[in-house]
Design a binder for these strands. Structure first.
Lengths: 173, 173
DNA sequence: GTCTATAATTTGATAGAC
DNA sequence: GTCTATCAAATTATAGAC
C-alpha cells in the first residue's frame, strides 16, 4: 500500500510541481514523464487539468486534516506546533510552498472548482485554529497565525533563508 | 504627465493582470488588447516577457519605496501604518495580491532576473521595517510583519472576506 | 513606433489501435 | 489502461513593410 497506483503517483508528481511553480507551471506531458507514462494516460485518469487540480487540492486538504487531528482535543501549544511543523516541512524538506497558499495567490487564473477547493482548505485550517485556541488572544487570531505561516514560506523561499521562516512564526509557536 | 507613454500603460496592464493571476496568467496579446495596440508593439517596448516582468517588478519596488519614505525617520506606528495601507489598498480597491508576493510564490516558474528583482523587493521591505522598528520587539519581528501582510492578502482574497485581512494584521498595526 | 504575417513551440485534449 | 498519432488553439518571438 506504500505508493502504488498510477493515479496517486500522478498526483504526487503534480503536487511537487504545483507547490513550486503553480497551476500553469507544469503540463500533462511533464507529469507523464515524471511517472513514466504518456500524456494520454494521464488524461485517462484525469479528464481535464481542472479535475486533476481539484483532486489534488482535496487530497492535500484531507491529508492535512488527518495530520492535524481534532483541534478541540489538543492544547493550544500542541495544535500550533502541529500546524507549524507541516509548513516548516514543506520549506525545509523540499523548498516547497503550501499548495493552497500558492494556488490562492494565483486565484484569478484558476478554474472555479479549484478555487473553491482551495477556499475549503483555508476554512478547515481556520476552524481547526478556532477550536484549538478558544478565547485566548495571547497568541494572535487564527487569521494571523494562518497568514503568517503562508507569508513566511513565501518570503523565506524567495530570499533562500529558512531562518526567516523561524523569525516570522516565532511569536506564534 | 498623468499616464501617457505606451510603455507605462503596458506596465499598468501587466501589473493589473499579474497581481491577479501571476506570471503565466496573461499574454502579450492580452496586454496589447488592454492598451489598444498589437502584440508586436508590446515586443517593441519589451523584447521578452522576462524583461517586461523585470521592469514591472522594479517599478513596483521603486513606487513602494517612495510611498513608504525613510523608515528611520518615521515612528514605528507610522511606518507600520504606511506599509499596511499599501497592502490593504491592493485588496480593497481592486482585489489584488501583492505583485511580489504572488511572483515569489511562483518562484520556480520564474525567469532568473524576475526572481532576483522580487527578492530585492523583500530585502527593501525588511530593511525599512528594521529601521523603523529598531529594537522594540513588542510588535513582532520585521519578518513576522511582512509575512503576515502577504499571507493576509492570500487568505482574505481566497475567502472573499476583507475582514480576514484586518483580523490577521490587527496585532501589528 | 506600429502594423501584418508568420515561424516555432507548447499546451490541453481526443480518436482509435492494442 | 496504455499506447501512437494528431488536432486546435495559444504562446513567445521575429521579419519586414509602412
Amino acid at each position: 500500500m506504500a505508493n502504488d497506483g498510477i493515479r496517486e503517483r500522478i498526483l504526487d508528481a503534480a503536487e511537487r510541481r504545483a507547490q513550486r511553480g503553480g497551476y500553469n507551471a507544469f503540463s500533462f506531458r511533464e507529469l507523464a514523464a515524471d511517472v513514466g507514462v504518456k500524456s494520454s494516460s494521464v488524461h485517462y485518469h484525469f479528464a481535464t487539468k481542472e479535475a486533476l487540480l481539484q483532486a489534488l487540492v482535496e487530497r492535500y486538504c484531507a491529508r492535512t486534516r488527518e495530520r492535524l487531528g481534532e483541534g478541540a482535543m489538543l492544547s493550544p501549544d500542541e495544535a500550533l506546533r502541529r500546524l507549524t511543523a507541516i509548513f516548516r516541512e514543506a520549506l525545509v524538506d523540499d523548498n516547497r510552498m503550501c499548495l493552497c497558499g500558492l494556488l490562492a495567490a494565483e486565484r484569478d487564473g484558476l478554474p472555479p472548482n479549484v478555487d473553491a477547493a482551495v477556499a475549503d482548505y483555508f476554512r478547515m485550517i481556520l476552524a481547526y485554529l478556532r477550536a484549538a485556541l478558544g478565547d485566548e488572544e495571547g497568541r494572535g487570531t487564527p487569521e494571523a497565525v494562518l497568514a503568517t505561516l503562508e507569508g513566511a514560506l513565501i518570503v523565506a523561499r524567495s530570499l533562500c533563508d529558512h531562518s526567516i521562516f523561524e523569525r516570522a512564526v516565532a511569536q506564534h509557536c
